[in-house]
Design a protein around this nucleic acid. Structure first.
Length: 424
RNA sequence: GGAGAGAUGGCCGAGUCUGGCUGAAGGCAACCGCCUGCUAAGCGGUUGAACGGGUAAAACCGUUCCGAGGGUUCGAAUCCCUCUCUCUCCGCCA
């Protein structure tokens, strides 16, 4: 959520931001309602001030045994008037809130303008895609041949867009989770959490998934719970409604969770294999920082995520999302894309964003700068570090051998009980 | 699932029966002074948030906030209703 006062005072800046994002939003309605709200507020406040004054007066008169019936009658009318104004006010405020919750964040000035992912800008590239002496297979073929991925039975159990890991496949998934968590906690200074995998509505509003993106979420029937689509939701909301101490910032948190997504509107996209699943594992990185440090923290967070790929020896590149591709809550996002030989291109495996104070304002995450009384909103950031399922895909495809076996990257072997190769 | 207790400021904790100068006693913590070889102790002071008005910016003024939402009343932390959460005991259970 943006600051309404800021919107009021900088309407052209907001209009420009919306244009760059290619976003639809009725800014004029918001500005009109805001004006109406303030007019109503002044009226109501004045009447309440009157009532408060006279109420004190009544208390005094009562003590002095004076007749109060006249004033009481008058105040009864004032109270009725206040009630009427409050009714009008709550209608206006509810609509303002609706609008504010669906107004996207302002892109950072360094974000390139563009329509869609075609206009994203490559920042850097690491590693060389391997030259194959044979036609590289995709992860579905590799995994099924090795008996470690089973899509057919997963479909029987649950349906499309699920996978069943088996044997070395299950071990590989688990090893990656542990490897990533260890790297981030032991070397990158993050604290590990293991949060609930379901969260309530307020949490989802806090990080911006609700109310706008309900159709992407699984809701648990007859409850107020939604399955988390990313650990960003439960982890960022750990400090929802809190005023933090500056000396405790930045908070650096990491968590493994499964992620549940409906993938509504992606019918026909990535239908094969485990690129796009209703359930996948992810290790997430979350930072809560001061406004002064958030941009450098975005850089280091991205590097922390990249480090996973470096250690695994997987070629990747980093792109800056253009304004048209930028997520609703983000001010700037780097996607990390890993090389997939079967597709001959880079595919997203991590998304690292600075949300500035957008989520913090929704979730009321604030801090008190040292030596001052005024509280300020924190900046929140997060990034995948990494999407585990897609990492499995990348390992299977990049490390496949002509005989169908797969070499395990060295860094991962301690987590695999020393296994160096998965063979059929 | 059954029975009971509770939810007040950064924290602890009064106030609720008996509605009104209580943004909220007292304590702790933090900050600023003083004192002091240093530290501790001691003394004095300061310290909530949101919104609106106001200002160059402050100061300042008003309103709202005692888990959430309704109601009663001239007036609600205090009375009534609904909900949420926490704790204790019983039952069931991984």
């Amino acid at each position: 959520m943006l600051d309404l006062k800021f919107v009021r005072e900088n309407p052209e800046l907001i209009r420009e931001a919306l244009r760059k994002r290619r976003a639809q939003f009725d800014l004029d309605e918001l500005l009109e309602l805001d004006e109406k709200r303030r007019a109503l507020l002044v009226q109501a406040d004045d009447l309440r001030a009157l009532r408060n004054r006279v109420s004190d007066e009544i208390a005094r008169m009562k003590k002095e045994k004076k007749d109060i019936s006249g004033v009481v009658k008058e105040m009864k009318e004032v109270s009725e008037k206040i009630k009427g104004l409050e009714g009008e006010l709550s209608v206006v405020e509810e609509r303002i809130r609706e609008l504010m919750l669906s107004l996207p964040n302002v892109p950072h000035e360094s974000v390139p303008e563009g329509e869609d992912e075609e206009d994203n800008v490559v920042v850097r590239t690491w590693g060389e895609p391997r030259e194959f002496s044979f036609e590289p297979r995709d992860h579905v073929e590799i995994g099924e041949k090795l008996g470690i991925l089973d899509f057919e039975r997963a479909a029987k159990i649950a349906g499309a867009r699920f996978v069943l890991f088996r044997g070395a496949g299950a071990l590989l998934e688990r090893a990656l989770i542990n490897f990533m968590l260890d790297l981030h906690t032991r070397e990158h200074g993050y604290e590990e959490y293991l949060p609930p995998f379901m969260a309530n509505r307020d949490s989802f509003i806090g990080t911006g998934q609700l109310p706008k993106f309900e159709e992407d979420l699984f809701r648990v029937a007859d409850t107020d719970f939604y399955l988390v689509p990313t650990a960003e939701v439960p982890v960022t909301n750990i400090v929802r409604g809190e005023i933090l101490r500056e000396e405790d910032l930045p908070l650096k948190m990491t968590a493994y969770t499964p992620c549940f997504r409906k993938e509504a509107g992606s019918y026909g996209r990535d239908v094969r294999g485990m690129i796009r699943q209703h359930q996948f594992d992810k290790v997430e990185l979350v930072k809560i920082t001061t406004p002064e440090t958030s941009w450098e923290e975005l850089e280091s967070l991205t590097r922390d995520a990249e480090e996973v790929l470096k250690r695994l020896g997987l070629p990747y590149r980093v792109v800056t999302l253009c304004t048209g591709d930028l997520g609703f809550s983000a001010a700037k996002t780097y996607d990390i894309e890993v090389w997939l030989p079967s597709q001959g291109r880079y595919r997203e495996i991590s998304s690292c964003s600075n949300f500035t104070d957008f989520q913090a304002r929704r979730a009321m995450i604030r801090y008190r700068p040292e030596g001052t009384k005024k509280v300020r909103y924190c900046h929140t950031l997060n990034g995948s570090g990494l999407a585990v399922g897609r990492t499995v895909v990348a390992i299977l495809e990049n490390y496949q051998q002509e005989d169908g076996s797969v070499i395990i990257p060295e860094a991962l072997r301690p987590y695999m009980g020393g296994v160096e190769r998965i063979a059929g």
